[in-house]
Amino acid sequence: MVSFVLPRLVGLRGPVRRSVSVAERNVAALRSAYWIVLVSGLFEPMLYLLSIGVGVGALVGDLSLPGGRVVSYAAFVAPAMLAASAMSGALAETTFNFFGKMKYMKLYDGILATPVQPFEIALGELGWAMLRGTLYSAVFLAVMVAMDLTSPSRALLALPAAVLVGFAFGGLGMTISTFMRSWQDFDLLGSVQFTLFLFSGTFVPAEAYPSVLRWVVEASPLYRAVDLIRGITVAGAGVSQLVDVLYLVAVLAFGLVVAGRRMGRLLCK
């Protein structure tokens, strides 16, 4: 009997170990064509930064932020691109890849026959998505420092913030995946994601919108992410950034719990 009671007393070790084993599987899969997907995610935000931040920025000139600071348009757009790439990287991994593994490869059916539980799969997949997202963010921040769009110390502080953004969207993505019926539903997700990308204070300050619309924009998760990272890297952090952090942590917790539960219901019928 002792041997059965002990594992439960040890508590967290089992779940964490099992979550890690789920992430490990993705490391093994890297040797397949999957790495191409990873590399492509690295370049997308840079292309936006160069084309719009620097290119369009030359036409726009400088911007004055609500705090009174005046910054170049590229410096205004760069943190938004970082937040948006953390979002899209996390969503790609937790929607498209996650759904494919769950519905088509039936990977999780195999995994659930082992001691691994639905919540642990969710945690493992999310952890992996974040590892990938952290790498992207670090590279992007290095580019920002090199282009003199932020300082090295601000960049260091922005990295954990970008990881939090990724975690929040990752949790959300997994929850969305459990509601997806087929690949067609992903078109809808793509549209929503693109709308967020365009209107979350990314290319234009939210203050530029009519007040009703501004409320909507400021409640969106990507706006909170942009606000957080822009505050750290360019503008200066305040109460607003504390709200951002709390908001994103809440989204993450909600996502993980709902996704774990829904997976249990979908796969353990």
């Binding site: 490869m105 990977l107 195999g110 001691p115």
Partner: peptide, 18 residues
């Protein structure tokens, strides 16, 4: 797991059991 080799299918699965 279609993204893994025959051997990796076994070694990866073993990891789920710790």
């Amino acid at each position: 797991d279609p993204e893994l080799t025959v051997r990796e299918n076994l070694t990866t699965y073993a990891r789920y059991f710790g």
